[in-house]
Design a protein around this nucleic acid. Structure first.
Length: 523
RNA sequence: GGCCCGCUAGCUCAAUUUGGCAGAGCAGCUGACUCUUAAUCAGCGGGUUCCAGGUUCGAGUCCUGGGCGGGUCACCA
């Protein structure tokens, strides 16, 4: 290292060996589960040696005038100029050959090779290179040149330790494979695996593209409470928590729906929220207990308008992320170009199960249960009518909807917040959007009749009593009061961001698109 | 919760079939080397084989129980 330091003992002539290694900590082996081992001891010894040489391993100031990518571009623009640059990054590889050493630095823009020679740096500083390890952050200043092999390289004239790493990076060749460790220590995954970096870059693009798309359409973004006195607006079990000062039980929201609708009452005509919601249920390839949705509400629109918006938005985001309209998912080519297929739920179930949900025999829970059994499924003994419809959709319909499809017009029993259709009061104006056999969107023409809304939610409460499950919505009096003040007709939407990112990045488990997915507690 | 698979050096993996001294590459340490890029070459150190029992002369390997992870089914938007 150069800069201000380098007043050590002149090294004994022949050996390039720096300080004696016997100053290392006691050799007792330990392993604190993270590599508190020989590697860490060696690095701590090097850290100490740097300090003895008067070098701060964690300096406050950094001189960087180019990113790695900028430095390379500079050289490519004019290979003869010998431009001087100052780059900084993490040491990914280092190769010493006597009095010449090459290292590869990586920063946020990419990688660049740097070279050190004893001739240029002097013996003392060159010796200090022995205190470098993979993973350390280093700053290098010098002229650009191309090696015989053509690699653009910074010929170091000075170099400075920017941050010493005490633990080694993942295997530089194999990367990090252990799935659990990839999730628990995502930073190592990002460090080692370009694929992982790409997924989360794509996710960032998706979120920002959705936000811009909505803003361009005149929607304003809202942030509504996550801690709520009643978890309503969807059918799911909530997480509970306790507010100490209020001595009150609170819940984590399971949807942003009801508060956003209150904003419609308040006069905002187009609102959306991108945020985390929480559902206390099982964890699998398609479910993480906390996940991100974009919900939007548009006054004077219907679910037909929302359908158009969803297909346009999804296609737009796909183009931005992938540069084309198609994605490959689970070995199938999927084309997101609008318009997407529209399919009535009643027709879909009739076609794939033979059951006509509007037929009088299928209207009762017992009648439907018999029909579902005839269709080869095994509904639970006391399952409710909506639960069995849900099962039919999940087992027979959803897996077939690989190409983007809107499933439309659901039974009123399973959708308390949507307006009924004009031609059939047993159905509501609702659609769900499916891609790759996975639900990614849910939308209604919102129910704005306060009396009917209250009655429908009371029916949900009654069902929850009868079936003692969480599969029914709750009656939120504050929400009813708001609707009683008058809510404009509106089209609403819930879009699953995580699943959309899965589709767009070709991932088949949600954990690959959530930075820190929920896992069981260690130990 | 049921079933299946996995857990071996810091990392990635062998050895498990047929019970018989637990190995390699990378990383680490020592040395050589001025154009490497998974640098190379020589040498060295490094293991509670996830845990606890059991069978056996002998267990990484077989048996039982447990832990953690993954997959799948069930549950669940």
């Amino acid at each position: 290292m150069t800069q201000e330091q380098s007043r050590g003992e002149p090294e004994s002539a022949h050996s390039d060996t720096p300080g004696a290694p016997d100053a290392a900590p006691p050799p007792g082996r330990r392993d604190d589960a993270q590599g508190g081992d020989i590697h860490m001891e060696a690095r701590l010894a090097k850290l100490e040696r740097l300090r003895e040489r008067g070098i701060d391993p964690y300096p406050r100031r950094v001189i960087r005038t180019q990113t790695a990518a900028e430095a390379r571009a500079l050289f490519e623009a004019d290979p003869e100029s010998g431009s001087r640059v100052a780059v900084a990054g993490r040491i990914m590889t280092i190769r010493g050959m006597g009095r010449l050493t090459f290292a590869t630095l990586r920063d946020g823009s990419g990688e660049i090779q740097v070279s050190f020679t004893r001739d240029r740096l002097g013996q003392e500083v060159y010796q200090d290179l022995r205190n470098l390890d993979l993973g350390d952050f280093l700053g290098v200043e010098g002229a650009l040149f191309a090696t015989r092999a053509g690699e653009i390289t910074v010929q170091a004239e000075t170099c400075a330790m920017l941050a010493k790493a005490l633990r080694p990076p993942p295997d530089k060749w194999h990367g990090l494979r252990d799935v659990e460790q990839r999730y628990r220590q995502r930073y190592l995954d990002l460090l080692a695996n370009e694929d992982a970096r790409e997924i989360f870059r794509a996710r960032s693009i998706v979120v920002s593209a959705i936000r811009r798309f909505m803003e361009d359409r005149g929607f304003i973004e809202a942030e509504t409470p996550i801690l709520v006195p009643l978890a309503a607006g969807a059918m799911a079990a909530p997480f509970r928590t306790l507010h100490n000062a209020l001595h009150r039980e609170l819940f984590l929201r399971i949807a942003t729906e009801l508060n956003l609708k209150k904003l419609l009452v308040g006069g905002f005509e187009r609102v959306f929220e991108i945020g985390r919601i929480f559902r206390n249920e099982g964890i699998d390839a398609a479910h993480n207990p906390e996940f991100t949705t974009m919900e939007s509400y548009e006054a004077y629109a219907s679910y037909h308008d929302v359908m158009e918006m969803v297909e346009t938005l999804t296609h737009h985001v796909c183009l931005l992320v992938r540069g084309e309209s198609t994605v490959s998912y689970g070995g199938q080519a999927i084309d997101l170009t609008p318009p997407w297929q529209r399919l009535s739920l009643i027709d879909a179930i009739k076609e794939w199960s033979g059951i006509d949900l509007l037929d009088s025999r299928a209207r009762s829970a017992d009648g439907l249960r018999a029909a579902v059994r005839d269709a080869g499924l095994a509904p639970a003994e006391n399952s409710s009518w909506p639960q069995m419809v849900d099962k039919l959709i999940g087992e027979l319909v959803e897996p077939r909807l690989i190409q983007p499809t809107f499933l439309t017009d659901y039974p009123v029993e399973m959708t308390p917040l949507a307006k009924t259709t004009e031609r059939d009061p047993r159905l509501v104006e609702r659609f769900e959007g499916f891609i790759g056999g996975m639900e990614i969107a849910n939308s209604f023409t919102e129910l704005n009749d306060p009396l009917e809304q209250a009655a429908r939610l009371r029916a949900q409460e009654a069902n929850r009593q009868q079936f003692t499950t969480e599969d029914f919505d709750r009656l939120d009096e504050d929400f009813i009061t708001a609707v009683e003040h008058g809510m404009p007709p509106a089209g609403g939407l819930g879009l699953g961001i995580d699943r959309l990112v899965m589709i767009l990045t070709g991932q088949t488990t949600i954990r690959e698109v959530v930075l820190f997915p929920q896992l069981r507690a260690p130990e």
